[in-house]
Amino acid sequence: MATAPAVDQMPSGNRSEARTETEDERAGREQFERLISEDSRIEPRDWMPEAYRKTLARQISQHAHSEIIGMQPEANWISRAPSLKRKAILMAKVQDEAGHGLYLYSAAETLGTPRDKMTEDLIAGKARYSSIFNYPAVTWADMGAIGWLVDGAAIANQVPLCRASYGPYGRAMVRICKEESFHQRQGFEILLELANGTPAQKEMAQDAVNRWYAPSLMMFGPPDDDSPNSKQSMAWNIKRFSNDELRSRFVGMMVEQVKVLGLTLPDDEIRFNEDTQQWEHAPLDWNEFKEVLAGRGPCNAQRMERRREAHEDGAWVREAAAAYADKRAATAQQKAA
């Protein structure tokens, strides 16, 4: 692969394999374990267990894919945004998501997988992205609900990731969290305007909240007792809180914020459990979650088609720019000779 390795990419000789540990590997492993136990950071050139590398590569690339696929439901409304201010905000937000995808691909590349490979996996249907983006954005109020609930859930997930043990991931998350603070607010304000608007607007807002509420709770992942990988991720300081902890915290925030909106959450079982100190909510339909994850959601095929189409339609452009660069480099070399 001619793609240059990321600056910090780890030399391949350090990968551990199923054989007797060498002296270097033992030193590497001890250092890794020490850094994790000190809650310090792992950097790309450090020795790391193969499973740690794989877990991160999968998680970061899925995260990047989610940003990129997540552009689509919102891009769907750029052309119809009902005011010029909203149009500009929405464009900036969708564009930010492309940027966030790029920050994350950049972090993932430090683990040794070129972006090109990640893109191929995505359009071949081999890689996953957040299931939430397989739901359709059918009204303008969905722009509000996506910002408030979906970005809200994403932020609740991402803030602890700023302290993830893998340095490049944490740094990308810091940048993303800074930029995303506007995403949730603009969503909230869209809903607030609608909720205080005409009866039709208010109805639109409530309908969107009803549709996005449960899927946004499912963004935190399966319940803890059904989330086998979580424990290891927490031991590695990638994950800092369990799925259920984060979900509970999120429900607690939303239940307050929805009052400001003058709307309701479609869940009459929300309550604070004094014994566990956790927010509880109605059971979620994990069958639906698994169905969407398995590709049988409302928009899976559409989202993939659109990404594939953009990638394939752009091939001649990427090739042209590469060819131009090659020609220029050749001319420069001739001149130098």
Binding site: I68, M71, Q72, A75, I78, S79, K87, M91, A92, V94, Q95, A98, G99, G101, L102, Y105, R306, E309, A310, D313, G314, A315, W316, V317, R318
Partner: peptide, 18 residues
């Protein structure tokens, strides 16, 4: 605005968006 999410490369999504 149509190009945002459809550009030939992600960097160009951002450029055309700007």
């Amino acid at each position: 605005g149509w190009w945002i999410s459809r550009a030939p490369e992600l960097e160009e999504d951002v450029a055309l968006g700007n």
